[in-house]
Nucleic acid binder design. Structure first.
Lengths: 340, 340
DNA sequence: TGTTAGCACTCTTTTTGCTTGACTGCTAAT
DNA sequence: ATTAGCAGTCAAGCAAAAAGAGTGCTAACA
């Protein structure tokens, strides 16, 4: 059922006020602050109707109204007036990114830092693996008798966190030989393609099969989100918000947010095309701490997903600000990473 | 002034009880729980004397006694009965380390994890840089026109997080040449030695001076503690302790503990030979959050400092358990890392 | 001289009742 | 459909009273 224009307006004012003050909103304060042309009694009737429809709740009979999760959803999708960032804030974002634009890892760390800084909420981010990412070159670096570091240069980054075990008696030339064969097989191909060719390589790859299997395993690891791909900033910001005056809630929040694996699952489900995505903990999304809200945006450059970034905080969140920050950071980030 | 045996015994009981219950300790409960042979009136006299001497405080005239920082110090150094870990706990420690004993980074992460798990406090750790660490080999890996990754293999680890800028017009052979010269200069030398030879290399190193300077800079970075060398575990554990029922205190704690640079300075001052080191926030140590206690141990293997690990938590900490865990983890860790 | 029983005193914590103030919901008039 | 006005509800704040936990002191005792 579509709400009347007046109901929408009133609901918007309730959410605005509640987000600002954290105090249940009364009919009187609404007429005084936003609606001088109608009486508080009329507003009371409307509030009562909105409560009936599930948009508002009351803590007790004589308290003001508090928005429900349903109300926040409508607010974000329909009612909210989009906020603009100040020049100062925009400059801040640009300055941060321009310094270290060429290192993807740095960019990602800075992204969460900026988001957390500007919104004053905890921010989370994860680099999306890209199964279509193509390999430029693979290099082995043997640094112990039986261990070699695998360096993989792809279109967008340098992967250098995987090791393979090498037979101790393997000569240096053999390792180079293996490297050459591997490069012949892999260069220009995507992770996905390489993982699929594993069967028909016996002839060419003869003696080095175990190495190939190891490298494919390393690639497979890079294809899924790793804990090291998850970035967190401002975990303590939550304490500044009155919604978390209760230790139990803080604990609930921190027990999720301090664990990278949990944050990973939190961010993993997010779709490809959706730009701004709001999930509210109370209904349906089990991964999100109770009474929390997760607002995320997925950024892409040159048609490839870069990563998902967002803010996690109280349901009573400053969505105007958060959405504005996420959109602007996205724009600037994408423009820097596209066609560079 | 030396305390009488009975005073020591009573003080020990007070601290034991207070650590266990978090409730101010009364004369009556002391006689009931630990001292059946003396009357509560006698204990009261002794408590009063101990208060006079600065070991105990009273929140108000009719409350029980609470240990002062001074009392905790004496408790840890003299009074405390050393705790033993259970077989189960010891097995747990061994199992964790045996899995990944050959990767120093993994070992360090696991160390803090184990400590936090077993003590149920937040644990912190930092890998000590070792200025005497000798270099086995240096390798450049050029992966972009103007950027090369610097790989440095030392006696104990593989450093792979530094990049140098290479002149775009530099040929591959020239880079290899530079690598050779650099190895001739550096292999077998310690970080410290290399940083000191920078002046008289002009003749041999001719054209590659900027590269050498870059590499030395990279070494200098490795010689100081890096943020990436700091590990943290169980930041949310603090919330389980009643001492942190107050949001202000939690904030205070987290604002230090979530920031790696702050933890770094916290752990940096610790000496070389001291095994177990207890610092209490209320007096003197400004870096430690107020009302917090930091217990650390420094581990070594083959005569070199591996790192400093410890626990940060409330002053009312279970020192018996914490010291036992730190000592045992240290023993096992050192035995694994020595002469491998 | 050290120890102990007993009692008065102090201070916190809990309970209770009361008052005030903020809202709402309802009703009747517009 | 809107509004003014009023009765009803509930939380929050306050003060006084009661209960409880512990101490310090004094006087007696070994």
């Amino acid at each position: 059922m579509e709400l009347s224009e007046r109901k929408k307006k009133i609901l918007q004012c309730v959410v605005d006020d509640y987000i600002e003050t954290a105090v249940p909103v009364s009919s009187k304060s609404l007429t005084e602050r936003h609606l001088p042309n109608i009486s508080s009694a009329t507003v009371r009737n409307e509030l009562s109707a909105l409560e009936e429809l599930g948009y508002l709740t009351q803590l007790h009979t004589s308290s003001g109204r508090v928005p429900s999760a349903q109300a926040y959803k409508l607010y974000v999708s329909d009612l909210m007036v989009k906020d603009k960032l100040t020049e100062k804030e925009l400059d801040y974002i640009k300055k941060i990114f321009l310094d270290k634009a060429d290192n993807l890892e740095e960019v990602i760390k800075n992204t969460t830092k900026v988001i957390s800084e500007l919104t004053s909420y905890t921010s989370v981010g994860v680099v999306s693996p890209d199964v279509g990412e193509k390999i430029n070159v693979i290099k082995f670096f043997r640094y112990k008798k039986d261990t070699a570091l695998v360096l993989i240069v792809t279109e967008r980054r340098l992967l250098k966190d995987n090791y393979i075990t090498v037979p101790e008696n393997m000569e240096e030339e053999q390792l180079i030989e293996a490297e050459n064969v591997l490069n012949r097989l892999c260069v220009g191909k995507s992770f996905e393609e390489i993982c699929n060719i594993k069967d028909d390589i016996n002839d060419e790859f003869s003696g080095y099969k175990s190495i190939f299997v190891n490298v494919v395993e390393a690639l497979r690891v890079y294809m899924t989100v790793q804990e090291s791909d998850v970035v967190l900033e401002g975990q303590d910001k939550i304490l500044d918000h009155p919604d978390y005056a209760d230790i139990g809630k803080i604990k609930n929040f921190l027990s999720v947010v301090t664990k990278k694996d949990k944050v990973m699952t939190l961010l993993s489900g997010d779709g490809k095309d959706i730009k701004i995505n709001v999930k509210i903990g109370t209904d349906g999304y089990e991964e999100i701490p109770e009474d929390c809200s997760l607002v995320t945006a997925t950024y892409s450059a040159n048609g490839t997903k870069i990563g998902t970034y967002g803010v996690i905080g109280p349901i009573r969140m400053d969505y105007q600000k958060v959405v504005a920050v996420l959109e602007n950071v996205g724009k600037i980030l994408e423009s820097i990473l596209t066609n560079r």
